[in-house]
Write a protein that binds this DNA or RNA. Structure first.
Lengths: 236, 236
DNA sequence: CCTACTGTTATACGCACGAATAATTTATGG
DNA sequence: CCATAAATTATTCGTGCGTATAACAGTAGG
């Protein structure tokens, strides 16, 4: 009986591969269905490696959560490119909303993962800390976008007011993202981007169309209705 | 060694007691930490009863979820009493917002339970069905409230428009409810009710104060702050 | 080419789980 | 007050889990 042949991987590659396999398992089978054996099978290795790289299953799962949140917030921020000579604030905010309410962020997998881990916040301060950090980053980023838009429109933009607006818009995004990802079928979720943009304009007191209400995006073609694919897309 | 003395309970009482013990366990230990032995210990009975009343642990958990959602939606609807001679629509909507963004609905336990089960939707159509029904009920109720308010203010209230408004406000409530319940400490969650009311006024295009922005509720005293304080903890 | 190192596999152990079955107690109706 | 059914307990069984340990194999330096 011969041993399995294997490949030595760099430390970070192996760790990353195990974390991604973990997220795949949690998304596919839930936390309770995620076992060390399944994770390592998904990653194509044997169970012993979990101990070798993370010490325990719990540690692996915590690291996988931090990895996921890092990806989510990074992608959310990237969608609105705030460069030195970036687009005007209104368009940045618009892209931010779009980025959160279309594929790939609007995904049943992602919201499922996200919710599963939220359920752990109460039982382990580590999860709470990761969540808090991600939320803070998201909120502050949004607050800066809001401030820029208000300035451009000559509206009052003192600190507390911007923060209140950011909290409300963030709530709106979160709620729509969740229900849209779960896709209960009560409405076509393709309406969400427009709906969020219009709602944001009203929340900020902007004139209708200030964020470019019509159509999905300046450069994208009109047919966005096509259902996004990616049934089992792993976080890359 | 003598046997444990026990009490015969009516079928529904026993079932309910087991479902509540299940929710307690899930909230306290997560789904993966919820075992038949723990559930029945919490309920003060022996593990055999799970099989007797629900057939299996999985069935028990599904029933517990349905029970939870039933409670949540019922309480949400009750908070705005829509009787024959109930209060004006604006106050009903206001109470609805308040009911969802103050204790006891704004609770870490509840959002933790809720998220845990959301994570199961993808793996079992039963959970998806329960969620869909609860969401539909919530949304339709909200839509009716919105319609009433728009009519009272002489604003356009055709069907599609009301629905869009309801979707947005529902998203807002969901998002604020979640982050507020998790209480990451980035802001005092006592500001949420006012914030939501103001945001809803803007979303619907109502004049400021139309929903009664000042103070928590007509009958409640001004000091609502006394509850959980948790002042803005400064991360870093 | 050898040797030391460590990433990786293979195997085993102890434990807690869900479920099934048997024994016993409570309630009910004539 | 007894007989009978149903509710509840007590115990057992097999399984899969997380983890620990030892054997093996790929890799690098001399």
């Amino acid at each position: 009986m011969s041993r399995k042949t294997f490949q030595r991987l760099a430390l970070d590659e192996r760790r990353q591969s195990l974390m991604e396999a973990t997220l795949t398992c949690v998304a596919r089978h839930g936390l309770d269905g995620t076992t060390v054996r399944r994770i390592t099978e998904e990653a194509g290795v044997t169970p012993g490696l979990v101990r070798h790289y993370f010490g325990s299953k719990d540690e692996l799962i915590k690291n996988a959560y931090a990895y996921l949140i890092g990806q989510l917030t990074a992608r959310a921020s990237e969608s609105a490119d705030t460069g030195e000579d970036g687009p005007p604030a209104a368009q940045q905010l618009r892209q931010f909303l779009l980025g959160n309410l279309t594929s790939p962020n609007l995904s049943e997998d992602k919201v499922s993962l996200w919710a599963t881990f939220i359920g752990q916040i109460r039982h382990d301060p580590f999860f709470a800390e990761i969540h808090r950090e991600g939320y803070r980053e998201f909120l502050e980023f949004l607050e800066r976008l809001v401030e820029g838009v208000l300035i451009d429109h000559g509206l009052p933009h003192r600190g507390p007011q911007c923060r209140r607006h950011a909290i409300a818009i963030n709530g709106l995004i979160d709620g729509l993202w969740m229900e849209g990802s779960l896709n209960s079928g009560l409405y076509n979720r393709a309406i969400l981007p427009d709906l969020a943009i219009e709602a944001t304009e009203r929340l900020l007191g902007l004139p209708a169309g200030a964020l470019g209400t019509a159509g999905p995006a300046p450069h994208a073609p009109a047919s966005q209705l096509q259902e996004e694919i990616a049934p089992c897309a792993m976080p890359e």
